[in-house]
Amino acid sequence: MYDFELTRPTSLADAIKALGEEDAQPLSGGQTLVPTLRQRLAMPSTLVSLTGIEELKGIKNEGGTLTIGGATCHADVARDGTYPALSELAGLIGDPHVRNRGTIGGSIANNDPSACYPAAALGSGATIVTNNREVAADDFFTGMFETALDEGEIVTGVKFPVPEKAAYVKFEQPASRFALVGVFVSKGADGVRVAVTGASEGGVFRWSEAEDALSSNFSPDALDGLSVPADGMIGDMHGSPAYRAHLVGVLTKRAVAKAG
């Protein structure tokens, strides 16, 4: 690793101030960032650790909306259970040690194309809360490893409307155990959402044809004959674009069946 200053602010205000310094970068759970630093693939001058900021931690359930602090670890979300599909998804991320350290804010901000949380956020119609504003998930995830976050802006929380029905089905990449494809479906007040992670070169996306079909008939059969085009899907040693496209169909059906 290149060396850097590590600061551990205890308030959000101090963190934002520290992030204003040149080449400063936020450090959340570090489960992706630390290995990246160890490979010398990043060279921040200052890392601002968010793990000591209590106001960024915790889960609140207010009137059918679950608000999760950005520095809340996956294990806490997995244990919560208020939004069962979300808790199950959190419990499928990485492994127990990763879940004790990795945070929802870090995952959402990183927007790894194979990460689970972006599917939950997009598939639930969540709102991403930053230190400056609130951004709808639909507008937040802008591409592989790209988000609407500005320089120095951090995810302070995520607001999930708890839907009537929801489920996540993940098909693991055999090595990394990230999602080769993961599908999150929900049926709530604002309709049906189908969000797909792991598959597309553009990162997490909504499968609108499936949403339309499911809106009138929320059952696996409604998806018969529907498929996503292989064009634009990720192709690598773990699966061709055609395979990923195929899995999107299979997993969406399974997720709908699971959501009931």
Partner: peptide, 23 residues
Amino acid sequence: LLEGCVYDEDGQLLTGSYMDYAM
């Protein structure tokens, strides 16, 4: 079922870590 070391045609090792080499 899982393991396979893969090079691309230029000789770059595609399975260079546990992220891609399935143990």
